[in-house]
Design a protein around this nucleic acid. Sequence first.
DNA 1: CGCCTTTGACCAGCGC
DNA 2: GCGCTGGTCAAAGGCG
Length: 485
Amino acid sequence: MEETFRRSSMEGLMVKEETRVESDGEDVGTNNTGKVSGNKRKAHDDDSTWNPPSSDQKNLGTIKQLESAKTKMGEVREENERLKTLLSHILKQYQSLQKDFSNTVQQNQDKKSTLTITSTDQDQIQEAHEFFSLSLGRSSSAFKIEEKYSNIGKLKKNDDLQEGLALGLDCKFEVPNSYQTSKNTSLENRSIVPKEVEIREQWPLSKIIKTMRSEGDEVPEQTHPKKARVSVRARCDAPTMNDGCQWRKYGQKISKGNPCPRAYFRCTVGPTCPVRKQVQRCSEDMSILITTYEGTHNHPLPMSATAMASSTSAAACMLLSGSTSSHPLGTSTTNTCANLHSLNLSFPDNYKSRQIYLPNSSFSSHPTITLDLTAPSSSSSLYTPYQINRFPPTSLNFSSLESSTTPASWSNGYSECGTQSYYKNPMVGGKNKEYIPYMAENNPSPPQQPLSTETIAAATKAITSDPSFRTALEAAISSVVGSGV
DNA sequence: CGCCTTTGACCAGCGC
DNA sequence: GCGCTGGTCAAAGGCG
Ligand SMILES: [Zn+2]
């Protein structure tokens, strides 16, 4: 399975690479300025030589065209080489990550050997493996995106582009600097929507959960399925964080124990998008803004919004996947995870890790991942040791990550905040075509019963110790933080 | 005019 | 059953 996927994804990569070069050639060819080494191009060249030799000027022009074509061809070849280098780089990283991951899984298994090893664990591990393979499969399209981006000459939206680039790079594949510079090459091509991603059917999580629940006979159907949440704590003076998405406020409440009202927002990018977020100031420190995301988008997202979105969906997957796979519909779970994780983001190197912990809010019935951007950067305080709760807390400390140059806004514990008017965000109004397909929660990944402590713990541990997950979360936060730039 | 925010009403879950 | 609380709805009004 895994191998199959990896292979197929590799083929996809190759095919796309070739396709790209060819199409470039054709583009160039139609302009009569370029030449590419394929047979196709030779045909073009022959065409040009068939011109009646009536005018020397025409011949001269043809020669000049040929020269420039050669030059361009050289450029294309260079780029091709770069891409190949990049590909091998990615593969190397993938392999090392896979090693890491299997190590982690093994450690996990060892630790759990004292406990009863349930089928859930096995499945989980399997899922995780499948995630890797599938995500690489996705990365082929991601790679395509990269390629396309590499052709964008102007770097106006460089930040967003980087996000887009990173978005495609699953499993912490980092873009080599040499490659990044290659974005300076000319040519214009922005149609960057891999169909394979677009096509994916999209299921609201709640629907899925209900479906799953109805399959499981003993569990009574609940009106509010427990959706995983991602909570972000950041210092922010503005009323809300600008995460690149479009939100409509649909409610406000003064919650108990906090004088500051909690605002409820709903994603309005897609008409049926189930994503919600809650924004509330911390009662202890009013400068801290707590933003809680719930659900995953079922529509394409602006570049600036994808990181956060993928993080939430990844979190949802992470927290919900643990108990499902022992059921007949486990395959769907796997898919979900694959989808979600495939959206993992690698990030431009300059992000310092932050605390990420999974208290799984014992106070609410929602499993929650909390990302704390407010603590001093190198703080290593671990949150909440294990407790026996419905959703046992798990803590993570990411400060040990190697990549570390903190953006100024982060190092202060401050994040960029947008204004309330998200719709004013130039990235959102449809002016930009840098939408990347974002599919998530399109497949069932719900628990059919309350998650067992061990399962959740194992799931969170396994996944969060996975570098790609860390990367994804970092990316998400970074996106939120940097989206306003 | 369309989309937004505001805000009180309403609903469901939960504990007693 | 009742009250509390969190979350959502929807009418009303504002804004560009
Ligand atoms: Zn959405």
